[in-house]
Design a protein around this nucleic acid. Structure first.
Lengths: 232, 232
DNA sequence: AAGGGTACTTGATATTTATCAAGCAATTTA
DNA sequence: TAAATTGCTTGATAAATATCAAGTACCCTT
């Protein structure tokens, strides 16, 4: 990667405690790439050559099975993906595409494993990233198995509302079809679920959402930190 | 833990490359415990005091949300759970109970984090354990979102059939209600799904299952290594 | 500004899944 | 051994979700 980008990248939490030489070696082998929207960065079942850190924009991780497709996660700055695949030196489990123009740090798997072996602080940071991914996924699984579509949507809105400042409104960060897939339902079902939540103070205008009755929405959502708190 | 148990425990893959002193320190602080069936070892939302390695028996990991309950995983020897919670020094995301009389190695979180920081080989082995858990969970999420109940059951049977020697028959390792919860359906639905698979050579006698038409079952299941191969 | 494409919504219907209720079977307990 | 408990199955029904088919609104391009 280019020298002038190095200072920015060094501030990443992933590199926080790592030694100068570790970071040096990692960055020397890495690529800091810009991609336009709708580019497929990786394809499931391919050898995991790179570990990805999202610096700007937004990446969708998704899985295919026959004609069906499911969004597993949306990755936003500053976060990463493909940690498990790279550590195991295996294949990607998910495909990834940019949803917006994005800037991504690509670190070769080889380099990641070398840094993991040689620098305990980096190893800890990397493993914590992996642990965070594990917990997000487990929460998504519980969300899917224990809740109905309307409950998942209600909880998503409450969480996004919180993230965006709890000002009584929020903006959907993705297209509704992507949100539907993330929440494990069809587009049509998402549309109707929004309709059903109108009775609980949810007003939809394109991607703009107004929440006028949080209490009522929480009654429907029954949120629990074990599933809905991103920090948990 | 007792001295005479040490030799057995030292052969664990988790300790394979670790230094003598690392293993020594870990085991000194650990407990090798036997539990009868149906004992709740950990409860979700509690501080993650111990990392667990299952040496004998069988542990169910499950989540609660209100009156509902969902089995997230069944852990068998030699495998572990609570890696992410312990590394983060956070709270358990899942509860755990023994399904059979079990023998479990309990390593204090403190000790795990110390060993992780001080021994690169242990750190690698521990992170690989975490990576395996992540991928299992992601596969379970895709399984749940991309497939119907019958497809999930069909794939489960094929996988278990493979694991148990591909001899045309298999034994369900748990009660059917536990299997139902693991596969994300009700008991009643599991019963009917077995009924539906009778047309594809699946004969059920208690926990004994006979598969007389693997080809037909695979047509229904449409297995893919990305979801169904435990090694992937 | 017009046209074309895409995302979204809505309605009608089918499928999947859950719930409720009863009964059966196996196992445990007294 | 009898009773009781528990796990499982089956039937009837309800709820949740997906599918198919239009239709509408919006964005993008020219």
């Amino acid at each position: 990667m280019r020298q002038e980008d190095a200072p920015l990248v060094r501030t990443l939490p992933l590199f926080a405690g790592a030694s100068e030489t570790t970071v040096e070696k990692l960055l020397q082998a890495s690529f800091l790439q810009r991609f336009p929207a709708q580019v497929e960065l990786i394809s499931e079942d391919q050898p995991a050559d790179f570990f990805y850190v999202v610096l700007e924009g937004c990446i969708e991780l998704f899985a295919n099975a026959g004609p069906k497709q499911s969004t597993a996660a949306i990755v936003r700055p500053v976060s990463s993906f493909a940690a498990a695949a790279v550590l195991r030196d295996g294949n990607y489990l998910l495909s990834a595409r940019t949803l917006e123009p994005s800037r991504v740090l690509m670190i070769p798997g080889e380099s990641v494993r070398a840094a993991f072996a040689g620098d305990a602080a980096f190893a800890k940071a990397f493993a914590l990233e992996l642990a965070a991914a594990y917990r997000r996924t487990m929460k998504a699984l519980n969300n899917q198995k224990l809740r109905t579509a309307i409950e998942r949507l209600a909880n998503y809105l409450l969480q996004e509302h919180q993230t965006q400042g709890a000002a009584g409104n929020l903006t959907l960060p993705t297209e509704k079809q992507t949100l539907a897939s993330l929440l494990g339902m069809t587009s049509e079902n998402l549309s109707r679920s929004f309709g059903a939540l109108a009775a609980h103070g949810v007003k939809v205008t394109g991607r703009e959402i107004q929440l006028s009755d949080i209490t009522s929405l929480e009654t429907i959502a029954k949120p629990t930190p074990l599933i809905d708190d991103p920090m948990y």
